[in-house]
Computed example of a mutant assay.
Amino acid sequence: MRRRAAVSVSGMNALSRWMQHTMNARMNRKIRRGQGKFMGMDVLILHTSGRRSGQPRETPVTWFADGSDARLLVASGGGRRNPDWYANLMAKPEQASIELPGQDAAAVTPRELDGADRAQAWQRIIELQPRYAKYQSKSDREYPVVRLIPR
């Protein structure tokens, strides 16, 4: 009887990370060409620095308008835990910037919302994209909402 080779968790993790990196790079190219939509949602490139490595990171993320020039981000990360971009953003907020479709990077100040501010922003988000309410209902944690304010 022949045994099947076990697939290591780290091997699957490496494949998953490679796929994510490849898809992010493709989306970033589209955004830089002025195409800032994904599944009907607006997308920007979030520039952060790795919280441990200090290396620059560029992550495409969906965003929602919030008043004049501010943008709202939801740190859903697939439900189980906060995404890496969120941890990097909050660890080194002074290094944050964003690229909107076809524009140069602009510095922003991130502010995590709580209480009434978060509730109001969340209501706006789920009115625009009801799928976020569905994602949230499947998670044991409350998704952070971050306001990006131009500097």
Rank of each mutant, 00 (worst) to 15 (best):
V7E: 15
R51I: 07
M39H: 12
F64S: 01
A119N: 02
A105T: 07
M1I: 15
A133W: 10
D69V: 01
R57M: 05
T109G: 05
I31D: 09
G102E: 12
R151A: 15
L148F: 08
R2M: 13
G102L: 07
I126K: 04
Q136G: 01
R3M: 13
Q136A: 06
S97E: 13
A121N: 00
M23I: 13
G77I: 03
M39N: 14
Q120S: 05
P93M: 05
E127L: 02
V61E: 08
L128Y: 00
A14Y: 14
N13S: 14
P60Q: 08
Y143L: 07
R71K: 08
G36H: 12
Q35N: 15
L15D: 12
L128P: 00
S10P: 10
D140E: 15
W85R: 03
S8V: 11
L128C: 05
Y86P: 00
H21I: 05
A70P: 01
I149Q: 07
V61Y: 03
P101Q: 09
K30H: 12
G54V: 04
D104F: 03
D140W: 08
V74C: 01
R147V: 01
N82H: 12
W85T: 03
G115H: 00
V108E: 00
S10Q: 13
R2P: 11
N28A: 12
P101S: 09
L73N: 03
P130W: 02
W85L: 10
S97G: 15
A107H: 14
Y135S: 02
V7N: 11
V61G: 08
Q35S: 13
K92Q: 13
R151V: 09
Y132W: 05
Q120A: 10
A75V: 03
Q136H: 02
R2H: 11
F64R: 02
R17N: 13
S68Y: 05
M12S: 13
S49V: 14
G77Y: 03
I149A: 01
G50Y: 06
P56E: 05
T62M: 12
R17G: 04
L148A: 04
G77N: 05
F64N: 04
T59N: 07
M1Y: 13
G115F: 00
R131T: 09
D42I: 01
D84W: 01
S16V: 14
E94P: 12
P110D: 04
P60T: 11
